[in-house]
Nucleic acid binder design. Structure first.
Lengths: 191, 191, 191, 191
DNA sequence: GATGAATGAGGGTTCATTCAT
DNA sequence: GATGAATGAACCCTCATTCAT
């Protein structure tokens, strides 16, 4: 009765992936506060399976976005190397960041909510995205391309907030306002 | 035969005020989605009293913020008349708007949530604050003090979002980012 | 400051009458379980006034229908004297009884519910309507116009039940079925 | 490898049955409007379990009575085949119908209440019992054993009303009055 | 590992009833 | 007597979470 090694692990991995895909879809439709049951149904698994793989809601949320976060992080050094100036790199990177936030209904609000259950996600973003953004911002700083006094954390948090969309304030508006915010970080032209 | 007119009304008014004060306090601590029971307990009244005075949650939220909203609205024409330039007036008015938002934990998030139960508040703000902000923004526009293409609604919504505070992103940060956003609305200096 | 004697009593009487009229109207619309507050509002008085005049709901229900009940009671001897046969008198009297029940939305159901709070009304009907009906039934009995074994109480209760109308079973249906029931009380024709 | 199929389903089925039994008992004592919590307590399960199995009150009411309704329905064609005349079949079938109604305290009242939440039950009875009764009544009609003009729906509704028992109007009274009603449906003997 | 039935805390809402003015 | 604000018990329903199979 011994099965090929790893068959079970492979099945487990597939279950996990299915849950992540389902969660991503449900989050888009209902936001990250969607009932766990809805995700289980969408994934075609039992509720218990969700809890086994992701004990807390934040674990699930974090896992859902981890891949995209990692992609975003990896982009930073590449943009810095390729772009004509640090600020251009920052701008492009923020575009990617916004793209990520804006397509994830409710994520921005979740981050802004101070919900203690989302500490993990918060931590993840701090530990990974923040250094990426900070690297770019520091490069801008060093090149005198942004006003002093702006911290990467605050800026990214502000961008996150600006990406909380809703009726009458859509993704295009969010992009517009983020661009305006970035414009506001430029040093005041000296006479 | 004139007895103290309105002894009961006065008491009722005091109850109502007490509820409003309690609600304001609870909203700061827990956000506008706080359980009605908590507000009743804080106010030292029965649940029924809350429902008597404010049939829906939105009624309560609206009442809590109405006074401050009205004050803010009334400020706009005054600032426009007094200030050296429309943009200075806009800046000062936004300061007051931010002051309002930033001290009301959860209001920004509530407005951004698209919660259908808060239509009234949304409507109130649209009907009163929006015209006030729009007046100032139009004055800036007419004076060439802001880039074209920025609508009052989007700008105010963005400001509202920037005022969603939390741990590690406090009121000072919110003010800073709002100021940065406003700086970003200035026309690009032509060479 | 002494007012004419009885002015206050007259006022009180008017209040009481107004409440009864309002209650009758509300009972027709919503049934006898309607919220007390609705009746107070319709009467233009405070809730406390209802409770002062009619401490229990049953008191109010009873008072509302007392007049019509009395009228119905008074009808019995007159019909018996006027009609060609006791059964004809019974039939006509039942018509009046049904007319009373059928136009009082929810009263039949209330009587049939065994609700202990309506004891008073139950008692009132037993004490007044029952003797009236019994008189007629006994006359029929004595004349051999109905089968033996039918008691006035049971018959009237059955009639009351048949008058519980609703969608798809209207007043005409109720009348039809009551007539059928009465037809069923006739002695079986002997060959 | 076949393990006991459906161990959990069996348990779930037992839970469901327990809920149905508890509900039936509570309905007898308190009527079909009894608090869901009372049923849960009687069944020894959590409230959530009731809602899981019977999302609406009407679902529960319907389930409680479905079996007996089905039995009653199945009886009709058998009685028609076996009985000496259609009217005898109708009489016997009505006996069974009354037996069903009379032992279910509150069901008659529930059906007569027009409560929109009981649409399902109403529909169930219309869809199943009504055709059964109609078949018998039509057979009587065809045989000239009942007066014309009596519809199955109205007759059954009337019977349902007559079965609303209470103190002083018990099951025997209900049966007596139903028999009397049926007697009243016979054609008037022509001289 | 997966399952999903069961649980029950939590929050919403209504309305009968009291009582100070 | 009349008033109606206040009360809170009682219901409703949802959904996060556990655990036996």
């Amino acid at each position: 009765m011994r099965e090929p090694v790893g068959v079970r692990q492979a099945q487990a991995q597939r279950t996990r992936s299915g849950v992540l895909a389902a969660a991503a879809a449900v989050f888009v439709e209902q936001g990250v506060q969607a009932p766990i049951r809805d995700i289980a149904e969408r994934a075609g698994v039992g509720i218990g399976t969700i809890y086994r793989n992701f004990p807390t809601r934040a674990d699930l949320v974090t896992a859902v976005y981890r891949h995209q976060i990692d992609t975003c992080v990896a982009l930073a050094p590449r943009l810095l190397a390729e772009s004509a100036s640090p600020f251009i790199a920052l701008t492009r990177w923020v575009d990617a960041f916004v793209e990520f936030l804006v397509t994830k209904h409710g994520l921005g609000a979740a981050l802004g909510s101070g919900d203690p259950g989302l500490e993990n996600l918060h931590t993840l973003m701090l530990d990974t995205l923040l250094p990426a953004g900070a690297m770019l911002l520091e490069a801008c700083d060093a090149a005198g391309e942004v006003r002093p006094g702006i911290t990467a954390y605050t800026l990214m948090r502000a961008i996150g907030n600006l990406c909380i969309t809703g009726p009458d304030y859509d993704q295009a508006d969010a992009r517009h306002m983020v661009a305006t915010l970035l414009a506001g970080t430029r040093p005041t032209p000296t006479a």
